[in-house]
């Protein structure tokens, strides 16, 4: 199948090697990109452990676990797709890829439900952010224990008792946790969306029978990308959902 070898390569093996290595180097940059967020996470978790515990407790572990399983399953499909493409079963590869795409969409759906929940509880960082101590749980009535900033109540600039109470401080730091939560999971979700599109293109090509034992580079390379996104989640899940 020399028809797949671009003009500047000598042979298919060189081309496959280049593409594979290129993707791995790209993934190294991705490791550093996500890694920067993990570094921010590490610093703040070290500085404010109690806020991270409190923030983590408000995340839904069941949803997180299901999502992890969904993503692992999608990775399995992708691995099987590569195997199928490399063993001259291009149509089967297409099937597995569609399976992976479906799992990816399910993951994004669950993520969207979680985000909606965060919006509903005002856990989104910004002007409307509110957070109650976990002991009050999800059942706390809005405003009951929440200490609001009452600007008019601070004439002369002295402090109101509640204005800088421990609750208020914790709230600020939990906002920091949620800032990280949204930055990290948001970036991850963006990568998922890109991955779904990528797999979609490759699945279409696979369905048309474009891949075989001698040429399955796109399946392999986009698979690497998908697995990487999975690995990021493998770390995000315990670090965000399972802090005790």
């Amino acid at each position: 199948m020399t028809g797949h070898v671009a003009h500047h390569f000598d042979d298919a093996e060189q081309q496959f090697h280049a593409a594979n290595l290129g993707m791995w180097i790209f993934l190294a940059t991705e490791v550093m990109f996500f890694g920067s967020l993990f570094a921010a996470y590490t610093a703040y978790r070290y500085m404010f452990p109690e806020a991270f515990v409190a923030g983590s407790h408000s995340l839904d572990v069941v949803m997180g676990t299901i999502n992890t399983a969904v993503l692992l399953l999608s990775s399995l499909f992708v691995a099987l797709a590569v195997n199928a493409a490399a063993t001259n079963r291009s149509r089967a590869a297409a099937g597995f890829l569609v399976g992976a795409i479906v799992m990816g969409v399910v993951f994004l759906g669950i993520k969207a439900v979680e985000y909606a929940d965060k919006f509903a509880h005002n856990h989104v960082p910004g002007a409307h952010f509110q957070f109650h101590r976990e002991s009050e749980g999800e059942h706390a009535v809005d405003g009951e224990h929440h200490v609001s900033v009452n600007e008019s109540a601070i004439p002369g600039g002295d402090f109101q008792a509640g204005h800088n109470s421990p609750d208020r401080t914790l709230e600020k730091r939990v906002e920091l946790f949620f800032s990280l939560y949204f930055a990290m999971t948001g970036l991850h979700a963006l990568h998922m969306v890109i991955g779904v599109v990528l797999l979609g293109i490759v699945a279409y090509q696979a369905w048309r029978g474009a891949y075989s034992q001698t040429y399955f580079t796109p399946v392999e390379v986009s698979g690497l990308y998908w697995h990487f996104v999975d690995i990021v989640w493998v770390f995000l899940f315990p670090l965000l959902y399972l802090i005790r």
Binding site: W24, L27, V31, M32, G35, F38, A39, T42
Partner: peptide, 18 residues
């Protein structure tokens, strides 16, 4: 080596920042 590079880089960032 390429696989390891990213993770090694990340460890350097984390270790020296911390």
């Amino acid at each position: 080596l390429a696989v390891a590079a990213g993770f090694v880089g990340l460890i350097v960032l984390l270790a020296f920042m911390m």
